[in-house]
């Protein structure tokens, strides 16, 4: 069902190259922080404030690097945030043009079903917990699969290799433990 890896790899590599050529390397996980900041600032407008030089926040993480994140929170129509929204559109159009995903698969992926059964609560709970760990880890690491692993290793950055070593050192054993049956 997935496209041939040779074509897929060239296309994916082409997109990463295009991003560096035209703008900057691709990254995603920061935008979860920006969306959190937007939600947080909507609830409590004191969270992000304008200063004479730019923006700052009562949250130390949003305020770091001279309020770089605080600025994005106040100006969500910036390249990186729109980029992630556009990814969703691209994914949606791609799935639509290949005929969609079955309702059964959309609710619980087949490999999960084969190993963990049909309980939706278990699957949704696992996806939620997984999301929490993934984004906490990504922010601690300063990037995720796209920013650190793909963009980082592509640029021969040391941090990309350190990140990839950590990610696979945990991901493979966890997956081997969870998914013993093949779907």
């Amino acid at each position: 069902m997935a496209m041939n890896w040779k074509i897929g790899g060239l296309l994916l590599g082409g997109v990463f190259f295009l991003a560096v050529l035209l703008v900057k390397p691709i990254g995603v996980s920061t935008q979860f922080v920006i969306l959190d900041g937007i939600i947080g600032d909507a609830v409590n407008s004191e969270l992000v404030t304008k200063t004479e030089e730019g923006y700052t926040s009562t949250n130390a993480y949003l305020a770091k690097s001279n309020g770089k994140y605080a600025k994005s929170v106040m100006n969500p129509l910036n390249y990186s945030f729109i980029f992630v929204l556009a990814m969703a559109v691209g994914g949606f159009l791609s799935v639509l043009t290949r005929g969609g995903i079955s309702a059964r698969e959309r609710s619980i992926p087949e490999l999960w079903r084969a190993n963990m059964g049909d309980g939706v609560a278990l699957r949704y709970g696992a996806a939620f917990v997984g999301g929490f760990i993934v984004l906490y880890g990504a922010r601690l690491a300063g990037g995720c699969t796209s920013g650190h692993m793909m963009s980082g290793m592509m640029q021969t950055s040391l941090s990309g290799y350190i990140f990839a070593a950590g990610a696979f050192a945990a991901a493979i054993p966890v997956s081997l433990m969870l998914f013993k049956k093949e779907a």
């Binding site: 997984g130 880890g137 969870l178």
Partner: peptide, 9 residues
């Protein structure tokens, strides 16, 4: 952490 969550989810 990301790896563990990636495998789980």
């Amino acid at each position: 952490m990301l790896g563990a969550g990636w495998a789980l989810a």
